[in-house]
């Protein structure tokens, strides 16, 4: 997924090979990840696709089934992975992930701790941010979940950047051998306040901690604990409002310069100089409006910085 090997970088000359991970794009809300295997086929409502037809084609290409249906084959990215991964837990999405990486000040070479691993959605983006020289240590107390995460990181080619441990961070804290090494710590735990003292020990002075909690009561308690040896405590909620854009016909019959201002925003407007000329005409227009449905809440992001005491 990541160009850890510079030769695997996306390019006009790089083509899909046997064994590559590809994202099969049917529609924006229908994608899946697949390993290309020359003897394999993909079967869906558009027909049967032979993997062997894909080999040698560039990423981003449109491929056809036996029935003439088509899909696109995309190079995997952490964003696409977040949309196709198998949900073993509730996962973090792009808005929270992006703010977490930025606010935790994660750059290549950083050592980052995470608990729990969950489905590995954030972990994949953490790995991208610390590559090629840093490392992510991620912990989950659920053995099977940790094993599935490990398999996923193997599949996405991130295993050299990520170590998955089975450990109850709320109960046992982070391993002692990591003490004082972490640049950043991310907690997604039901009782984050139990893990905060240990997170404080593993962080470098001025290192940043983030705790993700869906409920304000969790935030309240986490903040009470944080105040003893953390500073710069900031709590955010971040959401995305998306827009739908479509082409439609707009009746311009009554349109004149005077009422243009009252038309819906962002709507493409076309009129001609002579108003009388376009009476009762309709024009194809680009119409945009915010999507009616959106996520109203994901979680609160609590950030804090370890005090410099030496």
């Amino acid at each position: 997924m990541l160009p850890v090997d510079p030769n695997k970088k996306l390019s006009f000359t790089r083509s899909i090979c046997d064994g590559d991970l590809v994202i099969v794009y049917e529609r924006h809300d229908n994608m899946k990840a697949l390993k290309v295997c020359k003897d394999s086929v993909l079967q869906n409502r558009f027909g049967v696709f032979k993997h062997s037809d894909w080999i040698g084609k560039p990423f981003g290409t449109k491929v056809f089934s036996n029935k003439g249906g088509f899909i696109y084959l995309l190079a995997p990215t952490p964003e696409l992975w977040t949309l196709v991964l198998s949900h073993r837990t509730q996962i973090l999405y792009i808005a929270d992930i992006s703010l977490v990486i930025m606010y935790l000040e994660i750059v290549p070479g950083c050592l980052v701790l995470e608990s729990g691993t969950g489905s590995g959605s954030l972990t994949t983006s953490l790995a991208r941010a610390i590559a090629p020289t840093g490392h992510v240590y991620t912990f989950d107390f659920h053995e099977q979940r940790a094993a599935s995460a490990r398999e996923d990181f193997e599949k996405t080619g991130l295993s050299s950047l990520v170590t998955v441990g089975v450990r109850d961070i709320q109960g046992q804290g982070f391993p002692d051998e990591l003490s004082g090494f972490a640049d950043s710590v991310f907690l997604d735990l039901p009782q984050p306040w139990l893990a905060i003292p240990s997170a404080g020990k593993t962080l470098k002075p001025d290192g940043v901690l983030c705790s993700f909690s869906p409920c304000i009561e969790q935030v309240q308690r986490a903040c009470d604990t944080l105040r003893s040896n953390f500073t710069d405590i900031r709590i955010f909620e971040v959401l995305l409002r998306t827009y739908e854009v479509r082409e439609g016909k707009r009746d311009c019959g009554q349109a004149d310069g005077g009422n243009l201002g009252s038309l819906p925003r962002k709507r493409r407007q076309r009129s001609s100089e002579g108003n009388s000329a376009h009476d009762n005409l309709s024009y194809p227009s680009v119409m945009a409006r915010p999507c009616s449905e959106a996520k109203g809440h994901t979680g609160y992001l609590t950030f804090a910085r370890l005090k410099c005491l030496s």
Partner: peptide
């Protein structure tokens, strides 16, 4: 493909 227009919304809290 995968085209999307999004507008982020950010709210800070006093806790």
């Amino acid at each position: 493909i995968g085209l999307q227009i999004s507008e982020p919304w950010l709210r800070e809290y006093q806790v």
